[in-house]
Each structure stands twice: as C-alpha cells, then as structure tokens.
Amino acid sequence: MLAVEGADPVSTPVHHLLDDGSFAITVPVDGPLSAMVTRAGAAGAQAVLEMTDYAPLPLREPVRSLVWIRGRVHTVPGADVPGLLDLVASVDPNPALLQVNSGDDSRYALMRLEIESVVVADATGAESVGVSALLQARPDPFCAMESCWLQHMESAHQDVVDRLASRLPAAMRRGRVRPLGLDRYGVQLRVEDTDGDHDVRLPFPKPVDDVTGLSQAIRVLMGCPFLNGLQARRLERPGG
C-alpha cells in the first residue's frame, strides 16, 4: 500500500527494488494519488510504502511482519517508461506491468519512490535498515517453497510440530502451536493462547543453504539422533 498525505492509500501491484536504491511502483492511473504526484512535479510527493508479510496459514493474526519505506514518489517521464518496464519485467514478470502505458486500457501509472528510510517490524520489535543493506540483501534460499512446506507441515505432519513445540518453555506449550515461518536460520512457531499470540524462533545450529541441510537441521531441532532420517536397523540374531 502507498500512502500520500491528502489521499487514501492505494494498492501497489508492482513494487520492485532497483539497483539505484529506489522502488519502481505502480498505482491506479486515474486515482487522486496519481494526480497529486503529477502535480508535485520534480519535487515529488512525500509518501510511505507499506509492505505486509502474511503467513501462508489461516492464523488468528495473519500478519508476520511489516516494512515501511518512506521517501518521495515521482512520476516516470514517458520516454523512460518502456525501458523501466522491460527492466522490471526481466526480473519480476508481474502481469500488472502489461497494464502500464497501454493506451486507453492503461490501469496503472509507473512511478519511482526515492528511499529516505526503511523500518522493518515483527513480533520482536522494529529496526531501521539502511539502503545499502537493503541492496545487498538476497532472497532466502527457501522463500519459494516456504508457503507449501508450512501448509504441508500443518496438514500432514502434526508430529513434527509437536516435536518442535517440545523445545518451547513449558508455560508456552499450553496454547495451540502452529508453524509460522521457515528460513535458512531457523523455524518460527506461533503459539495461540488465551492471553494472546506469541512468536518464537527456534534457530538452527548454523545457517543452511539447501534442502539436505534444511532436513538435517530440522531433525536436530526435533531431537532426532539420525541426521539423514530415521533408518530401520537390521537386527541380527546372536551369532548371525
């Protein structure tokens, strides 16, 4: 969502971080926010882009984290629009890009948000993030599989959730424990209790980079003595 003072916040189907530290964003072309930014001219308009990270499970409180990006939003000169669209599409082929600069059928205007500050917030608190750190960040190796993995874990492997929950302090095991997140650093659990929700991270012994390492790290958290899985042992008769 993009918010500019004096206009209602609007959804931004495209919000793509560019190499120069700005965001390419799309907003409804006929809305008041687009008109306000156009009238602001070269100075741009002060704005806040809010990104919401929703859990892939139907939790009581679905929001996992929030990111607020404050800066000034500018229109993109018409001559620069095709090139910027191609640049964004080469990395993120969002269908909404086809509705920018498409004549009478245009639904969105392409704009650029020049970053002044970034704040990330989750259950542990809020922290400012520098633009250089934002540009150096890379996608977590499990980001594409996280949603499916957590959904499968919830629906078919309650035993895994229970084993992970056994690592929590006894006072937190009274609530309903649900998988919340997964990344190379550990597993997050959400405890839904009568006194509210509590998020807990179970860290891996060391960061992992592939599925094999992830499987081993989760088994360690579960207390499994076999890093590569529970394998049946062949019992031999005495003297056999």
Rank of each mutant, 00 (worst) to 15 (best):
A45T: 06
P93Y: 09
L33P: 03
S117M: 11
N101V: 06
L2K: 05
A35Y: 06
L59E: 09
A7I: 02
V27G: 03
Y54L: 15
I115F: 00
L2A: 05
G83D: 11
D19V: 10
L66T: 14
I25D: 12
L57N: 09
R112F: 05
Q99W: 13
D20F: 12
T75F: 05
M1P: 11
D105Y: 12
L98T: 09
D92N: 14
R107G: 13
A3C: 07
A121T: 11
L66E: 11
R39P: 04
P13Q: 03
P32N: 01
G41S: 04
P32M: 02
L33W: 02
Q99L: 15
L17M: 03
A123G: 10
T52L: 12
S34H: 10
V37D: 04
A24H: 06
D30F: 10
R60Y: 10
Q99Y: 13
V118Y: 08
D19R: 12
V88T: 07
G41D: 03
G41T: 02
S22G: 08
E50K: 07
Q46G: 13
E116D: 15
E5G: 08
D105P: 03
V48F: 07
V67W: 07
L2E: 06
E114L: 12
L85N: 00
R112H: 09
D8C: 07
S22F: 02
V37S: 06
T52R: 13
H74W: 00
S102T: 08
S117Q: 14
L33T: 03
L110D: 09
H16L: 07
A126P: 05
V120M: 11
M36V: 01
A123R: 13
V10E: 04
I115L: 02
E50G: 06
V67F: 05
V100G: 01
